[in-house]
């Protein structure tokens, strides 16, 4: 492989941590410790990690509701992440926002609208700042195949194209919007990439469960956008392993397909196989990293469980500056 060892190790670390965080959220939710609902991104991590491997300091990120653990690889400390998910004062919004609103502005995380797609223009606005500062940074907008159909996404793409701003529109196409398959919801197989031409944007479609393929595809678009050519589109094809939310038994889809997807397109397992086969890392290293990070997460959750919650006298805090 023509990659530096450090680069591959970093991708692996991001992929492993994102997977383990998403799994830990499922576990924590099952234990009744998450007050709201989670939308597990288990199985979709490589789409985020591959695309985000193109990032550099000063970039901005609008993360989607699935694979919220992506904010952690961007710098969000575990105590802040779990704090917000578990509605504690240690969360970035002190438990006012919740699972869809984790992350820190200082890491470039712009925030997310729970009304999916309403935040599309926000990525365009961050790109205005990038342009004003004259850097070659980009603003990443992650959206699922469901919200990609929404008007605000179309309007944001139109505006970003008209203003020729550095926005990279990333569609994580996992095949389903709650119970609705993209074969029904989208007139074209590639929900956002096939429409990119209508906005004058180049696009790539890639297997979002292959982290290096996602990186390579994203790199083409991100380089194009960093060079000042305007916005671009990346569509990562993956599969939603779990239900829309925990408890969704997915009666609307063929379970054997899900089993096959999990068996054959496990982005972490497949990447670790590649790393082991090429002698970059060993199974022992993977195991040690797992054990270490699991302990790190458990310690953070222990702290979070005993952390204070906001009180009635703080309920108006953050409403006005």
């Amino acid at each position: 492989m023509d990659y530096a060892k450090e680069f591959l190790e970093k991708i692996h670390e991001d992929l492993l941590k994102t997977r383990m965080l998403e799994e830990k959220l499922v576990e924590t939710y099952a234990e009744g410790k998450v007050p709201g609902h989670i939308h597990s991104g288990v199985g979709q991590e490589a789409s985020y990690v591959g695309v985000l491997a193109t990032r550099k300091p000063g970039d901005y990120f609008k993360i989607g509701h699935r694979v919220i653990a992506a904010t952690c690889i961007l710098g969000n400390p575990l105590d802040s992440f779990f704090g917000e998910c578990l509605a504690k004062k240690t969360g970035n919004a002190g438990g006012r926002g919740g699972v869809n609103h984790t992350g820190r502005l200082q890491d470039g995380v712009l925030g997310m609208s729970g009304t999916l797609g309403c935040d599309a223009g926000i990525s365009v606005g961050a790109a205005l700042t990038i342009e004003a500062n004259g850097t070659d940074n980009v603003s990443y907008f992650f959206v699922g195949d469901g919200a990609a159909n929404r008007g605000p996404v179309s309007e944001a793409m139109t505006l970003a194209a008209d203003w020729k701003l550095p926005v990279v529109f990333v569609c994580i196409n996992n095949g389903y919007g709650i119970s609705t398959p993209t074969t029904f919801s989208s007139p074209v197989p590639n929900v956002l990439a096939d429409r990119a031409v209508g906005y004058g944007m180049p696009s790539v479609v890639v297997d979002g469960t292959d982290v290096l393929a996602a990186y390579e595809a994203a790199k083409k678009m991100v380089e194009y956008t960093r060079a000042g050519n305007g916005p671009s589109v990346i569509e990562c094809k993956c599969y939603r392993w779990r239900g829309h939310f925990e408890g969704d038994q997915c009666p609307y889809r063929d379970g054997t397909v899900t089993e096959q997807e999990i068996a054959e397109r496990d982005c972490l397992k497949n990447f670790e196989q590649v790393l082991a086969d090429s002698g970059v890392m060993t199974a022992e290293q993977f195991a040690k990293m797992r054990a270490d990070f699991d302990q790190e997460m458990n310690e953070s959750i222990e702290r979070t469980l005993v952390a204070p919650e906001m009180t009635a006298d703080e309920i108006y805090d953050y409403l006005y500056v």
Partner: peptide, 10 residues
């Protein structure tokens, strides 16, 4: 929607 969104992002 993008006018308002971009105002937020900016």
């Amino acid at each position: 929607t993008a006018i308002i969104g971009s105002a937020i992002g900016a």
